[in-house]
């Protein structure tokens, strides 16, 4: 079961605060680009290049802002990349400690079954397409639910408010249309 919202909210707020107190606000979606760049450079060496001026790339996106994404991909042992790997380890351990996610849920979430029955292939296709659109949108916006919505609004960033308004404006009608049953 999930934590009561008052306890959960305070705990999550403390994590946001610890991040900005000790290092910087939390963000996740950039690391999909970094992993893409690492994979890309492995499959097709030369994507990331070391020059006298530093690390850069023949891809304009990786080369932007002084090649900061190319640099992170050249050295994956950096704060933001390790952060996401640690998130996975933290979630894995937490899920294990509360008894693990049940076999049925792991295969298909209850709300999917309530709306679409036992159709795993359809669900995985939906998750795949959702992931594609989410990350394309996040990179266009320059951040995701973590970087814009949580870290952004917490810092009174105007971009965070605009992002949150746009995300919910699309998410609520899509969820009501696709998932009319509660599950």
């Amino acid at each position: 079961m999930v934590l009561n919202w008052k306890i959960g909210g305070v705990l999550l707020g403390l994590v946001f605060f610890a991040a900005v107190l000790l290092v910087k606000p939390i963000g996740v979606s950039t690391q999909f680009v970094i992993l893409d760049a690492i994979i890309g450079d492995t499959v097709s060496p030369g994507l990331i290049t070391q020059t006298d001026q530093g690390v850069t790339s023949n891809n304009a996106y990786l080369a932007k802002s002084g090649g900061k994404y190319a640099k992170s991909a050249a050295n994956p042992l950096n704060y933001s990349f390790i952060f996401v790997l640690a998130m996975m380890a933290g979630a894995f351990t937490s899920a294990l400690l509360r008894g693990g996610v049940g076999a049925d849920e792991r295969r298909l979430p209850a709300i999917w079954c309530a709306n679409y029955g036992d159709t795993p292939v359809k669900r995985y296709a939906m998750a795949f397409m959702g992931g594609f659109v989410v990350l394309y949108g996040a990179r266009l916006a320059g951040g995701c639910t973590s970087g814009h919505m949580m870290s952004g609004t917490m810092q009174t960033a105007i971009s965070g408010y605009i992002f949150a308004a746009a995300a919910f404006a699309a998410a609520i009608p899509v969820a009501m249309k696709l998932y009319p049953q509660e599950g």
């Binding site: 939390i26 996740v28 979606s29 690391q31 999909f32 996401v84 998130m87 979430p109 709300i111 939906m126 998750a127 397409m129 959702g130 992931g131 594609f132 659109v133 989410v134 990350l135 394309y136 949108g137 996040a138 990179r139 266009l140 916006a141 320059g142 995701c144 639910t145 973590s146 814009h148 605009i162 992002f163 949150a164 308004a165 746009a166 995300a167 919910f168 404006a169 699309a170 998410a171 609520i172 899509v174 969820a175 696709l178 998932y179």
Partner: peptide, 17 residues
Amino acid sequence: GGLLLGAGWAASGYCPG
């Protein structure tokens, strides 16, 4: 980007993190 992310978030039930 926020509109796109919102649509995919609702369809999949996941955001990047």
